[in-house]
Design a protein around this nucleic acid. Structure first.
Lengths: 361, 361
DNA sequence: ATCCCTCGTGTAATCGATTCCACGAGGAGG
DNA sequence: CCTCCTCGTGGAATCGATTACACGAGGGAT
């Protein structure tokens, strides 16, 4: 009934609990004889240490919290997977919280994770102003931002820089003759929301193109908002020739709206997206997208966080995103099929250099 | 520095720790005056109880473990989301483990969850024989199987029954003139892997059709296996007219293989899938699929598990899946566009009745 | 032979909560 | 006025580990 505790092991091995604890933690010196008896007893009784008691005493859980923005978004799913993988390799386990792009849900999960006494927190903040996050950061909770961040905090950031890829995209579009380009933006409260618009506008400027307000759709990184924004574009007296969605779910919504109108891609209108996902290969036509090195981001984030926890000084990491040209903007795919279905094994980039130093704001 | 504990609260409120604990847990009788002072102190100090200590003492964590088969599979992602939602509503939080369809990873997570002293476990077993799962079940760990299960255990199962929908699918295919139907099966070690084949074969039999061995592809619920199986089908002297993939990722792989061959759907070959996902609406052509009431499954599973934990006696739940006809098998979608992008709001079923009683094996 | 250091080990304090038990005050009933 | 109950409260044990400290035995140096 009562599960076996360290006392039972000690009794069976004929030693004290201290000795048992010592062999289990590879601590001080224990005689080979005693160690062997303890190990045998552990094995015989099927003893597993109570992590609650252990954590209570040692004040560390070897657990990391990860709050992701939207578990239904394949990008974050892949991020979560790589995070868990790397954490496991480093001897940590991770607890997820899904914010569903809702700040109050995000805060709920952060609170819960903090209550669980996680050793560190990985966040992709759904909004810039959560007092909880600010407090935690100031209170010294080891923390790393991934994908999105909150400016002005001394918290390492691990993210992808899409500006170079966005320039490539605009060059591609311009080369195809497109001049009226629109964007569906993410929430302004997120860095990725505003940043991508800025990058897009800057890239357009290089070609002497404007980004008028009516060509900026306001989305929230969810499919429905992409659909609404696109409908609005299509009702314009002079609709855009290209719609660039700032994430993959909004691209899905855009697709939806375009199809509902009976328009054809890329003949009637072109479509491109930020974030590449396996399904973009299989839509008709395949969708041109900007791919992030998602797996690398997740791994780098975990390493930064464990560095922080274990007393080393991590740096912020910025990895380049890259443009993946498919058919949705007017050019047929170059050669053969871009048919990689699975992982990001082909993630090779031609953009800006890799890691940059941490910016202490 | 040192975080505030119950002692600090007690001191500030001028009461003993026992009293503080009592007001925090709405326990025995506490004078209104004392209660108020305690609450004020809690508020002033920003006190949060240490869940580790609490759990150690009470032997309950109000935490549920969920081990899902593959976090990159949108079906499980949606399942996870609904599970977390329902659990939160019932005052539990949940810890995920991603098995990646690998039994040893599944066991790793189950072990970790058990070590964390979760109150109950939700599993979708990646294989039928994990000794860990068997032991846990026999040891009395509250446990519920979701989606997949292991026969012969007295563990409630929450799942969808696809047999009726599969019959509908076969009727649909037969009506379109298809006679040579192939299936890409999941791993035989999973119930869903073998069950769907059986349902398919039975449905075929009703039309006097066979399911020859060479029309059964062996997959593992991952995209790559779907691709391989499909390639093998296409190399057959007499290739099938229809490929039915037993999950959505393998359907993705099938799509891939078909496109690589330069074949057109549904003209050259038809495609259908088990598990419906938002992207199926947007492929070319949209893919006919069998949709599970994923959200309901997740919620029902959590309720069954909490029933078990809190001493009530849960029943197994079987909900019907339903066929969603799109264009990938030869018929153009009935009216308008099946364009629902987001949730399963249209999940209405025409199949078998709802809940069935638990089968004590 | 004596001293001292090291090694292996056990005893007990501790982490931060919950909860059993005892106790004093005050009201009701006789 | 005395007795008995109830109510509110505090003291201290407890959950299951880790770890500081003490202690005895044995070996090397003097």
């Amino acid at each position: 009934m009562a599960s076996v505790g360290i006392k039972d092991v000690a009794a069976r091995a004929g030693v004290s609990v201290a000795t048992v604890s010592r062999v289990l933690n590879a601590h001080a010196s224990v005689s080979p004889a005693a160690r062997e008896r303890v190990l045998a007893a552990v094995d015989a009784l099927g003893y597993r240490p109570n992590t609650l008691a252990r954590s209570l005493r040692t004040d560390q859980t070897r657990t990391l919290g990860l709050v992701i923005s939207d578990v239904l978004n394949p990008y974050f799913t892949e991020l979560a997977r790589s995070v868990e993988e790397e954490a496991r390799a480093l001897g940590y386990s991770i607890i997820f919280g899904n914010a569903d792009e809702r700040p109050e849900l995000q805060d709920h999960h952060i609170r819960t994770l903090l209550d669980r006494r996680i050793d560190g927190l990985l966040v992709s903040p759904a909004d810039g102003g959560s007092p909880l996050v600010l407090d935690a950061a100031r209170a010294g909770t080891p923390m790393v931002f991934v994908d999105r961040w909150i400016p002005g905090l001394d918290v390492p950031v691990v993210r992808a820089d899409g500006s170079s890829a966005v320039r490539d995209l605009v060059a591609h579009l311009h080369g195809l003759g497109h001049r009226r380009l629109a964007i569906i933006a993410g929430p302004a409260a997120t860095t990725t929301g505003s940043e991508r618009v800025t990058a897009f506008r800057d890239a357009l400027a290089a070609y002497g193109l404007e980004l008028p307000d009516e060509y900026i759709g306001q989305g929230d990184f969810q499919a429905a908002s992409g659909r609404r924004a696109t409908e609005r574009f299509l009702e314009l007296p002079e609709p855009p020739e290209v719609v660039f969605a700032a994430d993959n779910l909004m691209a899905l919504g855009a697709l939806d709206a375009i199809r509902a109108r009976g328009l054809r891609i890329p003949h009637d209108i072109a479509l491109a997206a930020f974030d590449d996902i396996p399904w973009f290969v299989h839509t008709d036509p395949p969708i041109t997208a900007i791919a992030q090195p998602t797996g690398d981001l997740g791994r780098a984030a975990v390493r930064a966080l464990t560095d922080l926890i274990e007393g080393r000084t991590p740096e912020s990491v910025t990895l380049p995103a890259r443009l993946v040209v498919r058919g949705s903007c007017g050019e047929s795919p170059t050669t053969g099929t871009d048919s990689t279905t699975g992982t990001d094994s082909t993630d090779r980039t031609t953009g800006t250099p890799g890691t940059t130093r941490r910016s202490d704001a």
